[in-house]
């Protein structure tokens, strides 16, 4: 049985816009427009899309913050909007741009409140806290007021806070936004371990595609409130009509290889030539054909850049894709 089930989920907002001095225009915006998917226990799923695609809205419906306008939604068998507080004990949420920690108090105090609010048994709490402190390197930070923490430190603190009550599902909304390379690596490592050892289901919303590449075996792409792709990371390349690149090193500088079927010459750097071919095609016959006709020394196959693949999928929304924080 799947842990998360969405069936034709919809969310419409009525937006009022001033069009004149007293005139107002009412407009219906479909932020989520009929999304259906299921997520099984222990899956790690990337949920991506351009700004305003409906990612955060979906996560907010999954946690019960927002009430769906239509469709069916179950998380661990619970209808989130109806039984929000009951579900809250079983899910953990990290909003990258919003902290759940107490601004003026030491990190430790926020955790203590979580301990009591969620009624976590003492031994579980101690154990979970010790583990988070170790793996997220929070040891020196526990007694520092949250307002004095850096963004990366606070994010790690927030992730720990979301995991103290042993959630079955963890929703991460932009968990690595604004973090430096070291902090990102630490957070990713922690999540990978959590998923592998604990079996925690993770749904990750991000603009950073490296997060997805390193963590998720399954990706869902959403655009204009609709699911446009749901499948493995590898399949994304084909779905996005991507091309792979065959890089061949020849014995000497030669004119461009244009006579090999199924390949398209891209560019040459001295004896090295770049040939593009469809992501869905096999590289083997191509390599054989090149090796037969040319003095081949070395070769490598490069997977297409996931970012460009997804940019293609969005249809020109690439600028936003790598952009800053999400906005309505």
């Amino acid at each position: 049985m799947p842990l998360i089930e969405l069936d034709g989920l919809e969310k419409t907002f009525t937006v009022r816009r001033k069009t004149g001095l007293l005139r107002r225009e009412r407009r219906e915006v479909r932020a989520v427009d009929g999304i259906s998917f299921t997520v099984d226990r222990g899956e790690m799923v990337g949920y991506i899309g351009p700004n305003g695609a409906g990612k955060s809205t979906t996560v907010k419906m999954l946690t019960g913050i927002l009430t769906p306008s239509g469709g069916r939604l179950r998380v661990a068998g619970i209808d989130p909007a109806r039984e929000r507080t009951r579900l809250a004990r079983r899910v953990g949420v990290v909003f990258g741009q919003r902290t759940t920690l107490w601004w003026d108090l030491p990190l430790r105090d926020s955790y203590r409140l979580t301990h009591r609010m969620y009624r976590i048994p003492d031994d579980r709490y101690e154990e979970n806290l010790a583990r988070c402190v170790e793996l997220l390197d929070l040891g020196d930070l526990l007694d520092v007021p949250v307002r004095q923490l850096s963004l990366g430190q606070r994010m790690r603190g927030d992730i720990a806070a979301a995991l103290l009550h042993d959630p079955e599902v963890l929703y991460l909304d932009e968990p690595t936004i604004g973090l430096d390379v070291v902090s990102k690596a630490r957070v990713r490592g922690f999540l990978r371990e959590l998923n592998a050892e604990r079996g925690t289901t993770v749904l990750l919303t991000t603009h950073d595609l490296t997060d997805i590449e390193q963590l998720c075996s399954r990706v869902m792409v959403i655009d204009h409130g609709r699911l446009v792709y749901d499948g493995g990371l590898a399949g994304l390349h084909e779905a996005g009509d991507g091309e792979r690149m065959l890089v061949v090193d020849l014995a000497r500088e030669l004119p461009p290889i244009t006579d090999v079927p199924g390949a398209r010459f891209v560019r040459a750097d001295g004896p090295r030539q770049h040939l593009a071919f469809p992501a869905s095609a096999s590289a083997a016959p191509l390599v054989a054909a090149v090796a037969e006709a040319y003095p081949l020394v070395d070769l490598s196959v490069r997977e297409p850049d996931i970012e460009s693949v997804i940019a293609k999928m969005y249809g020109g929304a690439a600028g936003e894709l790598t952009g800053g924080p999400g906005s309505p």
Partner: peptide
Amino acid sequence: DVFLLRPVP
């Protein structure tokens, strides 16, 4: 939003 995530009223 943060308040709504907690398992208390």
